[in-house]
Computed example of a mutant assay.
Amino acid sequence: MPTIRNIALVTAVPLLLAAAGLTHPTGLSRSTATDWTQLHIVLLPVFPLLAVGLLVPLWRRPRADLAGIATVAAWTGAFVYAAFYTGLDAVAGIGAGTAVEHAANGTDPRLLKRPLYHTADHLGHIGVYALICAVLATAVALMARHGVRVLPGTAVLLVAGWSFVDSHIFWPRGVWTMLGFALGFALLAWATSGPVSGSSSAAESAA
């Protein structure tokens, strides 16, 4: 049961984002500005929760060793992702959508969007690269307890993370990216549900 619960916890957000990507406007214009803005308002608290997929398998007090240091690094990367990707969502989603929706007649929407997109891209890139670093740190932290079982999920998450750099949740690649996160998180949750490795178990028993 804990395995099923954890898989449900770590896949809920990427699956929700994948579903949202199916309705995400493909571009921002006067005709799509209202939907664009409202969707990003709804998703504002959702995007940061993507990091839950890493926090659930890491949910224990870090030890004073390499695995513990990697755990803290993963937590830090997850926090940076949550903060900076929220910035992208607010600037390119809510800010740009509101600006285009209320622009004066005759104003070229591209002139309004371009500087906002430029800033948002920088924020988003910092956030996604931090998430990729968090994935790597999570793998280091979990391998001490679960061995190579964590590698398939890590590999899937790294591919999804690289795609996330410029795919957002736009159909089709963004949706597939979110499904990739769901698969990677599920594999990681499954891998960490088994018994810990012998060396780690002995070390913890002696502690």
Rank of each mutant, 00 (worst) to 15 (best):
H146R: 10
G27F: 00
L16M: 10
T177K: 05
G124H: 15
T138I: 02
V196E: 15
F185L: 02
L123C: 08
L157Y: 01
L28N: 07
A202F: 08
Y129H: 07
P57L: 00
R110G: 15
F185P: 05
V128R: 06
V159Q: 00
L123G: 13
G95E: 03
P195L: 11
V165K: 07
L142I: 07
I94M: 13
A139T: 09
L123Q: 13
V80E: 07
Y81D: 10
F84D: 03
A189L: 02
L58S: 01
W162K: 14
T177W: 05
T154D: 06
L151M: 11
P109N: 00
L43H: 06
L50Y: 06
A78W: 00
T119W: 13
A189V: 10
A103W: 03
A67E: 15
A103D: 03
L183N: 08
H125G: 09
T23H: 10
V56S: 06
F164V: 07
R114W: 12
A12I: 09
L157G: 04
L116R: 05
A160D: 12
A134M: 10
L151I: 06
S29I: 03
S167N: 12
L15A: 04
V46A: 07
H118I: 10
R63M: 08
A104E: 14
L112T: 09
L39V: 07
A67L: 10
A12L: 14
I4T: 15
A202N: 11
R114A: 11
H146Q: 03
F47S: 00
F79H: 04
D108Y: 01
L188Q: 03
